[in-house]
Computed example of a mutant assay.
Amino acid sequence: MTGRDGGADLAPIGEFSPVVILVRPQLAENVGTTARAMANGGLFHLRLVSPRDGWPQERAWYASSGADRILDAATVHETVADAVSDLQHVYATCPRPRHIVKPVMTPRGAAAELRACERRSLRTGLLFGPERAGLDNDDMACADALIRYPLNPGFMSLNLAQAVLVMAYEWWMYADDTPPRTLMTNETHVATKGELENFMDHLIRDLDACGFLRNEQKRPGMVRNLRHLFQRGEVTEQELRTLHGVVSELSHGRHARRGGK
């Protein structure tokens, strides 16, 4: 069974990335959207334990938005024990721990441990339960630890793909070095101090000419405030060129009006 157009060019990222294990999934569409969520976070290995409607199911490929290769490579297992038999650490997602004595961690904490296992070349898995009931006690007995999502206690309902996406996101972000904030400058660049000073000279010269800075006592503070305004905002070179044009045009218009009187 393959996707209709082959889907995205997906492949495992790292030999020891976590295996996503769906225990008794009920809807093929949920399996497909799970594959889509996995692809978002760089996860590839998918195992299905006793899917209710059997496997493969065409609807899963339709719902995967091109994550076909994850579904193509998915394996089916009769029991959780069989699905985790070759793994060394297993984590079970569980919204309501049922009187079980196990470590409980957040998705972020679990991602840190999963990455540590990856560095040690250990194989890991993430268990997700059926859509309606979640994992039962026997399922969780196969896990080393439980993962509980710290969501709004008044409404903690997630669908299967959302639950997988949270873990996939935390897994990906733990190793991601994207800066938390950048400035998109496109074809220009953040202005240099020299470019800013050149503009300030232009601006102050015209402000003096029009009489805006005529109050000698207030002039230093007004000029200083203008410098603070343009220095703090990472003005781009393109924006400065526009401002140069604005100042020049205002000056030109002022002179034209005077000449017309």
Rank of each mutant, 00 (worst) to 15 (best):
H99S: 13
H99W: 14
H99K: 15
I100H: 14
I100R: 14
I100N: 12
V101C: 11
V101F: 14
V101I: 14
V101G: 09
K102P: 07
K102W: 00
K102D: 10
K102C: 07
P103W: 14
P103S: 05
P103R: 13
P103A: 04
P103F: 11
V104W: 02
V104L: 10
V104N: 12
V104Q: 11
M105T: 06
M105P: 07
M105H: 11
T106I: 07
T106V: 07
P107E: 07
P107K: 08
P107V: 07
P107W: 05
R108W: 06
R108V: 09
R108H: 08
R108Y: 02
G109C: 08
G109P: 08
G109F: 10
A110T: 10
A110Q: 10
A110G: 09
A110V: 05
A111P: 12
A111D: 07
A111N: 11
A112K: 15
A112G: 15
A112P: 13
A112N: 14
E113A: 15
E113M: 14
E113D: 15
E113T: 14
E113K: 14
E113C: 13
E113F: 11
L114D: 05
L114H: 05
L114Y: 03
L114W: 03
R115Y: 09
R115N: 10
C117E: 14
C117L: 13
C117K: 15
E118W: 02
E118K: 10
E118G: 13
E118R: 13
R119H: 14
R119W: 01
R120H: 12
S121D: 14
S121H: 15
S121L: 10
S121G: 11
L122T: 12
L122D: 13
L122P: 13
R123V: 05
T124G: 00
T124P: 00
T124K: 04
G125S: 02
G125H: 09
G125D: 07
L126C: 03
L126R: 08
L127H: 10
F128K: 04
F128A: 02
F128M: 03
F128S: 06
F128W: 05
G129I: 03
G129Q: 02
P130Q: 00
P130L: 01
E131G: 03
E131W: 02
R132Y: 01
R132T: 09
A133L: 09
A133E: 12
G134N: 00
L135H: 01
D136V: 04
D136R: 09
N137W: 11
N137Y: 12
D138E: 13
D138L: 09
D139Q: 07
D139P: 10
D139N: 06
M140P: 07
M140D: 08
M140K: 06
A141T: 09
C142A: 13
C142T: 13
A143R: 10
D144V: 06
D144E: 12
A145R: 12
L146P: 08
I147Y: 09
I147T: 05
I147R: 08
R148Q: 12
R148T: 12
R148W: 04
Y149E: 01
Y149D: 00
P150F: 06
L151I: 01
L151V: 04
L151R: 02
N152W: 03
N152Q: 03
N152P: 09
P153N: 04
P153A: 03
P153T: 03
P153H: 00
G154P: 00
G154V: 03
F155L: 02
F155D: 05
F155V: 06
M156V: 09
M156I: 07
M156Q: 08
S157E: 01
S157F: 01
S157D: 01
S157G: 02
L158V: 01
